[in-house]
Each structure stands twice: as C-alpha cells, then as structure tokens.
Amino acid sequence: MKTYLGIDVGSVSANFVLVDEAGEVLEAVYLRTRGRPLEVVQEGVAALAKTADHGAVAGVGTTGSGRVLAGLVVGADVVRNEITAHAAATARLIPGARTILEIGGQDSKLIIISPGGTVADFAMNTVCAAGTGSFLDQQAARLGIPIEEFGAIALEAQTPVRIAGRCAVFAETDMIHKQAMGYGLPEILAGLCEALVRNYLNNLGKGKDIRDKVVFQGGVAANAGMRRAFERVLKRAVHVPPHHGVMGALGAALLARAQTGPGARTGFKGFDLANRDYRTGCFNCNGCANQCEVVEITQASTVLARWGDRCGRWSRAPLVSGA
C-alpha cells in the first residue's frame, strides 16, 4: 500500500500526517516547533518511523512557514503555501465547504472556496497577532488556566463580558479591570473569545463573502469557546473537521498524492533522516550594499542549499563540499 507524508512547519507547531492512497489519515503527529524547525522535522519523522511502513512512502509534501527548509531536509516532492494546503484538506474532509476560518499560533487565514472547490479568495493576518492563537495562549497563561481547559470554561458563561480586544496588550489591561470589577472567569474567557473573533473578522473578513458551509480549523479550533463565539457572531453553524489541528499537513500530503502520479519517483530521503546531522548557518554577504544575510544548510559538511540573497549570487551558485 502506498502512503503519502505531509509536513506543516509553522511558527508554533509542526505537524506530520501520513495518509493512505485513498487520502485517509493513518497517523498524525503534533509537535511544538520551539523555534527549531530543523530539529522538529527530524523529531516528527522519527515519531512516524516507529509505526510507518518504511518502503511505502510514495510522495512527500511540505507547507507552512518552514516549508522550504523542511522540504529540503526530507526531499519533498511538493512544497506549497499554507493556503492551498489548507484548502486541499478541507475540500476533501468537508465537501461543500465554502469558507475556511483558520487560526494557528501566529497566523490566521480566511479562505473563500468557489463552488467548484478551488480557492477563490483569501486573506492572511498582517503584522499583528492579536487575532491568533498566541493571543489566547498569553491570556490563558496570565490567568493560570491550561489552554486545553480554556474552551470548556468559556462555554459555562451565561453572558460574555465585552473585552477590548483590538490589541493583545490593551485586552490584558481591560481583563484586569473586568476581573477587579468582579466578573466571573467563564464570562471573561467567553468575552476574550468574542474579542478574538471580532478582531479576526475585522482584519480578515472585511469585504469577504462568508457562505455556508463554514469550517473552522487550525490549532485554535480545539477551543470550543472559540467555535461558539464564531457561531454567535456569524449567526450560522461552524464545522470543526476531524484532524482540525493538522489540516495543513494533511493538505500537503494530499497535494503530494495529486502530484506524484503513477510511475513518479518520490524524492523522500527516508525515515533515517532523523539520524543525520543537519546544520544551519548564516553569514553576511559583502558583495554589495544590500548586505544580505545568507542562510546555509549543511549535512555532514556538505552544503545542501543556500538562500536569503537577493541577487542569486549564493542561491544559484553551484554547491561545493565544505572542508
């Protein structure tokens, strides 16, 4: 049986999904990136190696902000952006989905799907993370609540308190004030969910035509309070798919499956890549006034790739073995 591996390396989490030929999820691994994308890729592949059929992998896809690095290390057949990957996964799991609300650690996206199943429009958050998972994480930590229990507590609320949620810093100020006034914890948490939803829709939803079915995915979709807040604000049912936390990785696996037709050979470097010694380094190019910071990926003193330069002096140069 052929299998396909999808890897989504994001800012907060790195996800790994193995699917079979029919696109069914066989295995899913969720890890924290901890700012070490290279290590976490090796770790994730090692975790899958325990149960996976080693000879069966017929295609690998990577996505997420670390997609190029991850793709290089694992030998990906497909390296695609998160938007296309998420849409591919949703189109498969929730037929008829027209709107995808995706909230991850530091990223949030709104994707509009055409009736034909293709991406018709999208928006991503810009420089502000006020409408993302990190915002909830921060506030949960301040209140001393494990993020896993956040949603259940928020659901207990009778009337959510209105929290000023335009900015994570000001939201905290307002929450302290509301606590001091004597509002209950569930009400404050539910208010925080609504503040995030308002933020998200103000930032990403403006001018977008939100239609049924609405699908909510990404790490934050695990929070039932957030799902209810979306339902209250959008006044319609919001679906949370199974595997909602690893949709990017699932999409990457499905894209790899679509790309590697019969007879195509995968570039996958094998499960033992976890034991190889990859390193990243960086140097300043002094070729011109731009002073690009060039990143160099090496394995056992062989340079695998370089990038980060604008002119191509390093990224297009033939690679030579180091000393």
């Binding site: 952006n81 034909g116 293709t118 429009d121 499905l254 894209l255």
Partner: peptide, 14 residues
C-alpha cells in the same frame, strides 16, 4: 495557485 486553478477552470485543487 488561484490563478492556475482558475485557468484550468473548475479543476478542484485536490
């Protein structure tokens, strides 16, 4: 990707 999908008109991403 959106442009490419549109050009193939109606071809589902996956």
């Amino acid at each position: 990707d959106m442009v490419a999908a549109q050009r193939e008109r109606g071809v589902v991403v996956c």
